[in-house]
Structure formats: C-alpha cells, structure tokens
C-alpha cells in the first residue's frame, strides 16, 4: 500500500496545491502535453467546487453577481479543500470566509446571509422526520407535561443577525416570487429555518420564542424551558409558540424525559 499512497498523494498535491508533477506520470501522448492534462484535472477540481458553492449559495451569488462570486469562490477554494466525497457538504466555512474577505467588506450583511443560506442548504438535504400534531400531547397526563421533551426536525436551524437577513433571503432565493425593497436599517432578526412539505422555509422568531426554542433544542424539558423563558420574558405565550412550531413542522415528536 505504501507505493500506492505515495503515488496518489503526490498526484493529489499536484492538483490541489499546484505542485510540479513527477516524471513518474508518463508523457507520451500524441495530442497534448502532460501540463495540459494536469490543467484539465486542476480545472475540474476548481470547477466542481465552484459549482457546489454556487448550488449551495444562490442568494449570495445573486447579491454579488456571477463574476464577484466566481472570484470569491476561487479564493475560498484555495484555502478550503473539500473534506467530503459528497459535494453537498462543501462550503460550510464560506460565511466566515466572507466575513474576512476584504472585497466584500462593504456588504456587512453578506456573511450572515451566507450563514442563513448554508442553514437552508443543510435543511434541504436533512433527514426526514415523522409528522406531529398537538393532539399527541393527550397521550400524557397533565402532571407529566412539565417533563416532556420535544423532538425537533433535523432541518431546524436558528440564525441571528443584526441585519434583516430573512427578508433578504425571501426576496432573492431561487423560487422567490416577489421582489421588494429591503431596508438594511430595519434592524436585527432571528431567522428560523425549517422544512415542511419538503420545502425549506424561513420565518422570523420573536426573542421569547427563540429563547424558548433554544432550551428545547438542548432537550430541556417543557416545564423548565417555559419557566426560564417566562422569567426573562413575562409576555411569552407557550400556546401560540407551540402552535406555530408544530405548524412549521419544527416539532416532530414528544417523549417523557428521563
């Protein structure tokens, strides 16, 4: 195996890190040079990763334009090799990269929008989960309710931002039907990413709802979650929050906690 490892890793470095190819690769082709062949592989490598990023970040691409996106993607690819054979996993680090990417500094909302978009991308491919309705709570006696722990859909993500990123996403995602003006100074938002009827959706959460859902995400039982939330937000309404999250297919099951 040692020989095979050596040969493949050198070839890999030739493609990814731009190393000079070793003469061990034969060079007796009638129609082109070895450099041409290596360039084909380098192009494939960059092209496949660029396309993966473009597939995962259509809103960012639309916001900055194809040429800027290409430049951004190629710089990102230089510093971030792929770690998965599944191209849908590529690009998780792009939001952080965008935040420190000098040419994008004027677009302060871009990094958070990218975080939201990555959450949507993951939600699209997340595993399926059972459907839930509130009537299922009836199987538990009222005195058990404080000890209930909710299962959340694997697509569920919360993204906070100082910018109205939900509105930006809603106006620019590939299936967006309306184009509307967004006031970038309209303030912060808490975006909830969820998936129902196999469609990824983004809605806004209020501070109390987000606070409560954070507790639930860490499997804190219903009683404790609700109590802590009410201590911070006396206006918190458990009933409407539950209805909203069940309707959005965020809650997918319930069990009695340990």
């Amino acid at each position: 195996m040692t020989e095979l490892i050596d040969q493949l890793s050198h070839f890999a470095q030739t493609i990814v890190q731009g190393k000079e190819p070793k003469t061990q690769i034969t060079n007796c082709y009638a129609n082109y040079s070895q450099n041409t062949a290596i360039e084909v592989y380098r192009n494939n490598y960059r092209g496949n990763l660029h396309d993966a990023l473009a597939g995962a970040y259509p809103v960012i691409k639309l916001l900055v334009g194809d040429d800027f996106f290409r430049m951004l993607a190629l710089k990102f690819i230089e510093h971030n090799p792929s770690r998965s054979a599944n191209l849908h996993h590529y690009g998780a680090e792009l939001p952080d990269f965008v935040a420190s990417f000098e040419p994008a500094q004027a677009l302060a909302y871009l990094s958070d929008t990218a975080t939201l978009e990555w959450a949507c991308h993951c939600a699209y491919f997340a595993n399926d989960a059972p459907l839930f309705n509130l009537a299922q709570l009836a199987q538990f006696a009222p005195d058990q309710h404080p000890y209930l722990v909710f299962d959340l859909h694997p697509a569920t993500r919360i993204v906070r931002s100082l910018y109205p990123i939900s509105a930006i996403w809603l106006a620019h995602h590939p299936d967006a039907e309306v184009d509307f003006q967004i006031d970038l100074n309209s303030g912060s938002c808490i975006a909830l990413v969820c998936r129902r009827f196999n469609k990824v959706e983004v809605i806004n959460l209020s501070e109390p709802e987000a606070y409560w859902l954070h507790q639930i995400l860490t499997e804190t039982p219903l009683g404790g979650s609700t109590m802590t939330t009410l201590e911070h937000y006396p206006d918190f309404n458990l009933q409407t929050t539950l209805v909203k999250l069940v309707e959005m297919n965020v809650i997918t099951g319930v069990k009695l906690g340990a």
């Binding site: 195996m1 020989e3 095979l4 040969q7 493949l8 890793s9 070839f11 890999a12 470095q13 493609i15 990814v16 592989y41 494939n44 490598y45 496949n48 990763l49 993966a52 090799p81 792929s82 770690r83 998965s84 054979a85 191209l87 590529y90």
Partner: peptide, 19 residues
C-alpha cells in the same frame, strides 16, 4: 478521490498495479 486530509471531488486515475 481522497488523500489524507482532503477529498478531490473528481474521478481520478491510478496506476494499475497488483498492489
């Protein structure tokens, strides 16, 4: 498609050896 530490998302040839 993979070397230690990274993946190349392509279909890459290798030497046809007994190993």
């Amino acid at each position: 498609n993979a070397a230690t530490g990274f993946v190349i998302n392509d279909l890459l040839p290798f030497p046809y050896t007994r190993e």
